[in-house]
Write a protein that binds this DNA or RNA. Structure first.
Length: 501
RNA sequence: GGACGGGUAGCUCAGGUGGAAGAGCAUCGGACUUUUAAUCCGGUGGCCGCGGGUUCGAGUCCCGCCCCGUCUACCA
């Protein structure tokens, strides 16, 4: 205790002051941590109610309407025998007025023991002040929760990003607009969910703990199950389980939940992130592309309230139809090289390097195509654009293109330079799938620890038979970034991963 | 992993060439019954990220480390 005191004497002093005040409530027989409080409405409701009354009859409204509110004190303007405070609940902010005469001298004296950040319950009547601000004129008030920490500064808010991420609760208290971002996030997910449910998709939950990580090329987190004494992996994708459900006879399924990838962290990647995957039987990638466009269009225009919006200074127009470009054609257009004429790794490397794309020795033909696309094409795909027909080498779970075995029936959607979805006609030929897995196994044995694992049970499932199916994966976090104009994925994840302190 | 930028009071930030640690807000005391970034007067508050070094003297210069951000690399 003594040492702590020395370590942060300012903080400790502020804290001691508040503890002293908290104890004074106790001395008066008042619990500074109440169990329950019955409010008559939220601040927003009361404001609306008052404004309505005012429209009907302004004079009558000034007689005041009764209200009991609860919230946090966010500002305080003291003026001798009267005091103004700002009260904030989740819905809104409202001004409180306390007059010595109105609440009584002794009670008024106890106002000294309230600080910014405390939760307070107030009862009184709502009307406008002379300056025209809707205000609750307080008759009764009580402490609901005493806060022992001082809040970030009222004017500048909390700007230190590290504190904002590590102590998101402070960020939310100090920067109310942050709340809007996360409300929007939930709305987006709700919209997707209801869109899919309306169209007959069944929402399911598949395992997060996988004995074999599959469905994507990524390094997994490893954990251990004690009772079975076995290693398990946090899922990198739900894909292989959702397809098993299609094998089982479900025809339209989707899942919205977390995936985990043990990889780098940057503005577009968090080790745990939210994915929506859907699978639709008897559909192919072109049909699904149509549906993808409709899904994104419907959800985004609903959330944004318009067909156009700004992302990072760029105006994005959602008006349909969206552009569709063959992947190889996009590379020809944007990178100025043709990677379709060859499938030779060294030739592709030569071409890529000619236009300034760095190629590492372990990269094969497919990776080279992917790399050129990422650096030379993706940044320019600001308006919604589908790229389609990807090389087979980087699409081990996608069906071969019907007239070209070098390609797969796969597409990705890009908006604002962000990759927001990945989809394909699902490979349902069990023998082909086995060969593709064997390719991955070879890569793994050659030292590529992101190559996919062979999942024997998944192959068994395909042998049981999966109908023609198209599948779609959507990066929810990136979609939220677009809709909230966020530069970093950390701004749309409530508690992003930071290094342990 | 690399490059660059940052870490100073609870919060937001200043602190040329090395020479007694500052402001605003918050907090504490005082004045004030219509304020709203209230105002006015007075006060408290600092391991200047951590550890070394150079120097008579380091927030400032040098070395190492930690954390954060951006870019890059890695990665659907």
């Amino acid at each position: 205790m003594e040492e702590q005191f020395k370590e942060h004497s300012t903080l400790q002093e502020l804290r001691q002051n508040r503890i002293r005040k908290m104890n004074r409530f106790r001395e008066r027989g008042d619990n500074p941590y109440k169990y329950i409080f019955h409010r008559s409405a939220t601040v927003a409701e009361v404001r609306k109610q008052f404004e309505k009354r005012e429209q009907e009859n302004a004079e009558q409204a000034q007689e005041g309407i009764p209200a009991t509110l609860a919230g946090r004190i966010t500002a305080r303007r003291e003026q001798g025998k009267s005091t103004f405070m700002d009260l904030r609940d989740e819905s809104e902010r409202i001004q409180l007025f306390f007059g010595e005469k109105q609440v009584g001298e002794d009670k008024y004296e106890t106002l000294k023991d309230f600080d910014l950040g405390d939760f307070i319950g107030v009862e009184g009547s709502v009307r406008r002040t002379k300056r025209g601000e809707i205000t609750l004129f307080v008759k009764e008030f009580q402490i609901l929760t005493k806060s022992l920490r001082s809040l970030p500064e009222k004017f500048h808010g909390l700007t230190d990003v590290e504190t904002r991420y590590r102590q998101r609760y402070l960020d939310l208290v100090a920067n109310p607009e942050v709340m809007d971002t996360f409300r929007k996030r939930t709305q987006i997910i709700d919209e997707i969910r209801s869109y899919l449910k309306e169209r007959g998709f069944l929402e399911v939950e598949t395992p997060m703990l996988h004995p074999i990580p599959g469905g994507a090329t990524a390094r997994p987190f490893i954990t251990h199950h004690n009772a079975y004494d076995t290693d398990l992996y946090l899922r990198i994708a739900p894909e292989l389980y959702l397809k098993r459900l299609i094998v089982g006879g479900f025809e339209r399924v989707f899942e919205i939940n977390r995936c985990f990838r043990n990889e780098g962290v940057d503005t577009k990647h968090n080790p745990e992130f939210t994915i929506m995957e859907l699978y639709e039987a008897y559909q192919d990638y072109l049909g699904l592309m149509e549906e993808t466009e409709d899904l994104f269009y419907t959800v985004m225009t609903k959330i944004i309230g318009d067909e156009k919006f700004i992302y990072q200074e760029q105006e994005i127009l959602l008006t349909r139809p969206w552009k569709r470009i063959l992947l190889h054609e996009a590379i020809r257009q944007f990178a100025g090289i043709d990677l379709e004429v060859t499938r030779d790794r060294d030739e592709a490397k030569r071409l890529a390097e000619k236009v300034g794309v760095e190629i590492r020795p372990e990269m094969g033909y497919g990776k080279i195509v992917d790399e050129v696309m990422s650096t030379k094409v993706k940044p320019y795909l600001v308006q919604p654009t589908f790229l389609y027909d990807y090389p087979i080498e980087i699409s081990p779970l996608a069906k071969k293109k019907r007239d070209n075995p070098a390609l797969t029936e796969r597409y990705q959607l890009f908006i604002g330079g962000l990759e927001v979805c990945n989809a394909f006609s699902e490979l349902n030929d069990p023998l082909d799938q086995r060969e593709r897995f064997m390719e991955q196994v070879k890569l793994r044995e050659a030292g590529d620890d992101e190559a996919q694992y062979l999942d024997e049970d998944f192959l068994t499932a395909l042998e049981v038979g999966m109908p023609p199916t198209a599948g779609l994966g959507v990066g929810i976090d990136r979609l939220v970034m677009l809709c909230t104009n966020s530069l970093s994925i950390r701004d749309v994840i409530l508690f992003p991963l930071l290094r342990k302190l």
